[in-house]
Every structure is written in C-alpha cells, then in structure tokens.
Design a protein around this nucleic acid. Structure first.
Lengths: 153, 153
DNA sequence: GACTTTGACTATCTTTGATATTCATATTGT
DNA sequence: ACAATATGAATATCAAAGATAGTCAAAGTC
C-alpha cells in the first residue's frame, strides 16, 4: 500500500542526510533496489526534489552516468522565499503546494503553524467554490501573495 | 432504517476517536464497507465534516490516494507533552521516537529545530556506543528527561 | 422543498514502457 | 597518430494505462 514515490523519496532523503547533504546515485541501481522501472526515479526527482523543494539535481548520461542530489544551502530565509516565489509557476495543484510548503517547513523557513495556515488557505477545500478550470491558477496567485507577505514581514 | 449519511458519519467519527483525533481512509474501501457508492463518502465529508464542524479534511488523488480527517481541537502544549510523556514506555526504538517527535512537531507543540535536536540526541547514531540490549531503554530515559525539560521551560 | 443517493464524467497523481538523447570508449580508415 | 565513426551504457522524455478522489445533475425519499 505504501506508494512507490514515497519509498523512493525516503530512500533518497536518507542518503542525502547520511552523507552531509549530498549524495550521488546510479538510477538503474536505485530502481532495482526499489523494485521499479528507472523512469520512476526520474519522476520522484522531478516531483519531490525540484529546486522549489530546496534541492539541486545534476545528472550525466552515458557510461558511468550518475545523478547527484544536493540539499541547497539557503543562506537566508529571504533567499529561500525568493526561490520559492520563482518556483510557483502559472498554476499549481494542491499536491505541488503541499510539497513546496512542506519543504519550507522542514527547512525551518516557515513554522509548521504558518505552513498549515497557508496550506489550508490554498487547499482544494478552501477553493472549492472556484471553477476547477482556474483553481490551480488562483492557488498559484494566493501562494505568490502569501510568500510575498512572508518576505515583507 | 438508519440513513446512509448517519452510518458513514458514525463510522468516520469512530475511527477518528479511536485514533487520537485523526484518521486516514481510502474512499472506495470505506464506501464498500458502508455498501454505497464512493461519492456518498464525499457527500458526508462535505456536509458533516466541514471546517465549521471543527474538522480538517485533506485528500490526495491518484494511486495510493487517501483522505485524512482530523478533529481540530484545542489542546494546550502542556497537555500534549503530558500525553507524550505517558506514551514513552519503558523502552523506545529509534523509529518510535521519530514518530513521536514528528507528531509533536506537526502539531506545533515543539519546533522542527527542537524536534531535530531531540531526535539527534536519541538516534541510533548518537547511542551507537551503548549496548544494543539496553539502547532502547536508555533512549526512553533520555526522551522522558527531554520532555520534562520542555514542560518546565 | 430540503436532504439523500446514485452514477457518469472529470481531474489528479502514479506507474510503466517504448523511444530518444547523451556520454565514454573502442574501432576503423587514412 | 589522428579524426571520424560505431558501440554500449547510462539517463531523459513522453505518452498511455492504472488508480484514486472530486463534481454535478438527476432521481429518490421523507
């Protein structure tokens, strides 16, 4: 029942933490360990380790190819918030928002309370009255404003 | 004949109460158990578990999708810490400690920074020099003392 | 008439696999 | 030797299939 994405996410995070904030993996090997196809690893990296989530991912193909995941060192909260702001695109699903805020919370840039507050403000429930066609766009708007408010205060 | 809404409402409330004020369900499974269509569950959640009713509902679609219902109750930090203290038994594994602290952090009772600090203090890594036979017992001791310190401060 | 029940359709997230792209190294032609 | 090419070994991409939950309107019930 455990989702593959969660398993792989946890494996990578563990390796990063166990190794001073950075780790290098072999995609095929990790896929084998997690018992999945290699592209699943790529999926996890794009959905859970984007720059918006505070990680830098570099890779190389070909013989001896590899992927390096580094937890970004954010000098200041302001810096982090700026990057957060940039990573909010034109639209954003609930899940994407959750990931983004969760990362900010786990980095200590915002408090859990603040994270929960913002999350509740951009949840599908809070926005249920909005036409689903534009909901994700509205969510992105609210999120950008919230982040700006954090930057000012 | 009891109405379906009431049956489902009761089932969910029971689960929430049985599980420390929060439970996670699978919509289809619950619908099957209640012998109804899945959307009926959604209907109950909207009409009986709205934020106005003191509940927070979060959900996720897709594979492994789920719905989490949380009773929003006001518990003082001190209450929480007391319960935490009680739940630390005679011994505690690293994972149990992680779960306990994670919950406290996500409830906002302690900051992520504090959670990480305590976790590092009771990690297997920190306690590696201790005989594995008594490690879990020592961990529980440290944890109890740490929680007491939080309560006093 | 208000609330409940149902089900077809939609939206979102995950998993898989086929194909494309890139890189290192071996091979070949001159 | 050198440059060009072929080969094999990785990773990236993308679309289709699968798995859930949400929406909405019509039908049913009290």
């Amino acid at each position: 029942m455990a989702r593959l994405v969660d398993v792989i996410e946890e494996m990578i995070k563990q390796m990063v933490e166990d190794n001073n904030g950075s780790c290098t993996i072999n995609r095929s090997q990790l896929a084998e360990k997690a018992n999945c196809v290699p592209s699943q690893v790529t999926y996890v990296l794009t959905t859970r380790f984007s720059s918006g989530n505070g990680y830098i991912v570099e890779s190389r193909r070909g013989g001896g190819g590899q992927i390096t995941i580094t937890r970004a060192q954010h000098v200041t909260s302001d810096d982090y918030l700026h990057r957060m702001l940039e990573s909010v695109g034109n639209d954003m699903t609930q899940q994407q928002a959750k990931n983004l805020l969760g990362s900010a919370v786990s980095c200590g840039v915002i408090s859990p309370k603040t994270g929960a507050l913002i999350m509740s403000a951009v949840s599908d429930r809070a926005l249920s009255k909005i036409d689903p066609d534009i909901r994700s766009v509205v969510r992105a708007d609210i999120l950008r404003n919230a982040i700006l408010a954090l930057m000012i205060s």
